[in-house]
Computed example of a mutant assay.
Amino acid sequence: MTWKVLIADDDPNVREIIRLYFRQQLIELIEAPDGVAALTILAEVKPDIVILDVMMPGLDGYETCREITKRYDDVPVIMLTAKNDEFDRVLGLELGADDYMTKPFSPRELVARIKAIFRRMQKGQRVIEVDAPVQYEFDDLVIHVARREVLAGSVKIDMRPKEFELLAFFAKSPGDVFTREQLLEQVWGYDFLGDMRTVDVHIKKLRERLSPCHHVCIHTVWGVGYKFEVAACS
Rank of each mutant, 00 (worst) to 15 (best):
W3A: 05
K4E: 15
V5F: 01
L6C: 07
L6Y: 03
I7Y: 00
I7H: 00
D10P: 05
V14D: 00
R15E: 05
E16T: 05
L20S: 04
Q25T: 03
L26E: 15
L26H: 13
G35P: 07
I41Q: 04
L42Y: 05
V50A: 04
I51Y: 03
L59Q: 05
D60F: 06
D60C: 06
G61K: 06
Y62R: 01
R66Q: 09
I68K: 08
I68M: 10
Y72V: 00
D73S: 12
V75D: 11
P76E: 02
L80N: 08
L91Q: 05
L93I: 00
L95W: 00
D98L: 05
K103C: 03
P104F: 12
F105I: 03
S106H: 10
P107R: 00
L110G: 01
V111P: 02
A112L: 11
A112D: 15
I114F: 11
I114A: 05
I117V: 06
F118S: 02
F118K: 06
K123W: 15
G124I: 07
V130T: 06
P133H: 08
Y136K: 11
E137L: 12
E137V: 15
I143S: 00
H144T: 05
L151R: 15
G153T: 09
S154Y: 15
M159C: 12
R160M: 14
P161C: 10
A171K: 02
K172N: 11
S173W: 15
G175N: 08
D176N: 10
V177W: 13
Q186R: 08
Q186Y: 07
V187Q: 01
G189Q: 11
G189N: 05
Y190I: 08
L193W: 09
L193K: 09
D195N: 11
D195S: 09
D195P: 11
R197V: 09
T198I: 14
V199T: 11
E208I: 14
R209H: 13
C213W: 00
C213A: 04
H214T: 11
V216R: 03
C217Q: 14
W222Q: 06
E229M: 06
V230P: 00
A231I: 06
A231E: 08
